[in-house]
């Protein structure tokens, strides 16, 4: 009985949380600050904070993943005598899967956790209450710019990740392992379709971006206003975002590429 109680209570709590966070997302997305100049200033500031500041980790990770892919791909493809297809392998793997997924995971760790901690600390130090008492809606002033900045930045970061990965993979396979550059780029050009691979990869990145930023700002806004509460909320952001990205990736991949 206790177990059933626990399961039902947890399930109801989950559904309630999902409903609350859905209302929260809806209310935030359509509430940018009233003055356009101020809205732009807040948005640009957040683009710098969540987007530009995430560039280093995205570029470095993209480069190493591209290099590792090229090495692994070359060693396997060589045994079939088709090492020239390494360009195709690199591009498809990065564009379809690794760029959006790894960017999402890194973005959740770097920007998502920072967003949760920042908003949580604003709550703890009564800054959110202060906005409310001033008659300024914190959803408008604090949450909306962060949501929109995160949602617009992550797909761009994903494109940068894929571009850097392909470039780094090219350096390893063409400059180091001696794959003919014409074959490398030719096989890539032949295999990659703009709508099927590039656009679908971007759609994935956009969906992951919504999930990560939504989870991050909601966890910050709803956290217990204590140092322990902020710590828990930050951990929850990273865990839930990572799980959401992996689950959504499976669903999106099945929908986009499941027509065998």
């Amino acid at each position: 009985m206790t177990l059933i109680n626990y399961i039902v209570t947890s399930l109801l709590g989950f559904i309630k949380g999902l409903g609350n966070s859905g209302i929260f997302l809806f209310q935030s997305l359509f509430r940018l600050p009233v003055r356009p100049k101020e809205a732009m200033r807040l948005y640009v500031r957040q683009v710098y904070s969540v987007g530009v500041m995430s560039l280093i980790i995205i570029v470095v990770s993209g480069a190493f993943i591209g290099m590792v892919l090229a090495l692994q791909g070359f060693s396997i493809l060589t045994s079939y005598g088709s090492e020239t297809a390494v360009g195709q392998l690199l591009a498809l793997t990065l564009l379809r899967e690794l760029a959006p997924v790894v960017t999402g995971l890194l973005f959740a760790g770097r920007a998502g956790s920072a967003l949760t901690a920042e908003i949580g600390l604003m709550k703890t130090t009564e800054q959110l209450s202060s906005y409310e008492m001033m008659g300024i809606d914190p959803l408008r002033r604090v949450i909306a710019p962060r949501l929109l900045a995160g949602i617009t930045c992550m797909p761009i970061l994903s494109i940068i990740f894929a571009a850097v990965g392909i470039w780094a993979g090219m350096l390893v396979s063409v400059e180091w392992l001696g794959v003919y550059s014409g074959s490398f780029w030719g096989s890539m050009q032949q295999a990659v379709q703009f709508d099927r691979d590039v656009i679908n990869g971007l759609i994935k990145a956009l969906v992951f971006a919504v999930a990560v930023v939504w989870i991050a700002v909601y966890q910050g806004y709803e956290c217990q206003p204590t140092s322990e509460g902020i710590g828990r909320a930050t951990t929850r952001t990273v865990v839930l975002s990572s799980l959401a990205i992996l689950a959504l990736d499976f669903l999106l991949t099945a929908a986009m590429f499941g027509d065998f």
Partner: peptide
């Protein structure tokens, strides 16, 4: 609330 002003215990200045 726009007709109210509140001084919070912690000050709650925007950091």
């Amino acid at each position: 609330r726009r007709k109210m002003g509140m001084l919070f215990q912690s000050g709650a200045l925007f950091s």
